[in-house]
C-alpha cells in the first residue's frame, strides 16, 4: 500500500474533526458562571484550531512527500487471523463465559501461530486459564464474565 495516500486521507480526517470540534463546546449554562462556560469553549476551540493548523501542515507535507510503499506486516495471514480470533474471543466471552472462551482461544491461537504440539498446547492453555481464574476471580474477587447463553432459555 502507498503510505502517501493513507497519510493524505488521515490528514483530511483530522481537518474534518477540527471543523466539527470548533464551536461544539459553546454553551450557556446557568448553573455556573459565564467565565466557566467560556473557558471550556476556549479550551476546546484552541484544540480545534491547533489541530486544524497542524493537520493542514501535515497534509501539505504528505502531498509533497515521495510515494513509498508501506509494509504493515511480514505475515498478513497470521496478522489478520489474530485480529479475527481476538474479536471472536471477546464476542464469544459474552455468551459462553471467560473459562470456555479462553480454553478455546488459547489453543486455536497457538496453533494459528504455528505451535504444532496439540497435547502440550492444551496443557499450557489449561494452566494459563486456571492461573488467570485463580488470580483474578479467587484472589482478587473480580467476577469474570459468566456464561449467559443458556440462562435465557431456562428462565
Amino acid at each position: 500500500m502507498k503510505k502517501k495516500y493513507l497519510e493524505v486521507a488521515l490528514s483530511l480526517l483530522f481537518i474534518l474533526i477540527a471543523v466539527l470540534l470548533y464551536g461544539s463546546a459553546d454553551t450557556v449554562n446557568q448553573a455556573v458562571s459565564k467565565a466557566s462556560t467560556d473557558s471550556t469553549s476556549t479550551y476546546v476551540n484552541t484544540l480545534a484550531i491547533v489541530l486544524g493548523l497542524v493537520a493542514s501542515v501535515e497534509l501539505v507535507l504528505s502531498i509533497l512527500s515521495h510515494p513509498t510503499t508501506i509494509e504493515f506486516t511480514k505475515d498478513p495471514r497470521r496478522f489478520f487471523a489474530l485480529i479475527i480470533l481476538l474479536i471472536a474471543y471477546v464476542w464469544g466471552m459474552e455468551y459462553i463465559g471467560f473459562i470456555l472462551a479462553t480454553l478455546l482461544f488459547l489453543p486455536v491461537t497457538m496453533r494459528m501461530m504455528g505451535y504444532r504440539n496439540w497435547v502440550k498446547s492444551l496443557i499450557i492453555s489449561a494452566a494459563i486459564t486456571l492461573f488467570v481464574y485463580l488470580l483474578f476471580q479467587v484472589g482478587f474477587e473480580i467476577l469474570l464474565p459468566e456464561p449467559t447463553v443458556l440462562e435465557g432459555v431456562l428462565s
Partner: peptide, 24 residues
C-alpha cells in the same frame, strides 16, 4: 459436552434454594 455441563449447572442453580451462587 460443555454445553451439557453448563446446562446441568444452570438447572441446579435455578432450582436450588436461594442463595445458591455468588451474590454480587
Amino acid at each position: 459436552l460443555s454445553t451439557l455441563v453448563l446446562g446441568a449447572l444452570v438447572i441446579t442453580g435455578a432450582f436450588a434454594e436461594y442463595p445458591s451462587k455468588t451474590i454480587k
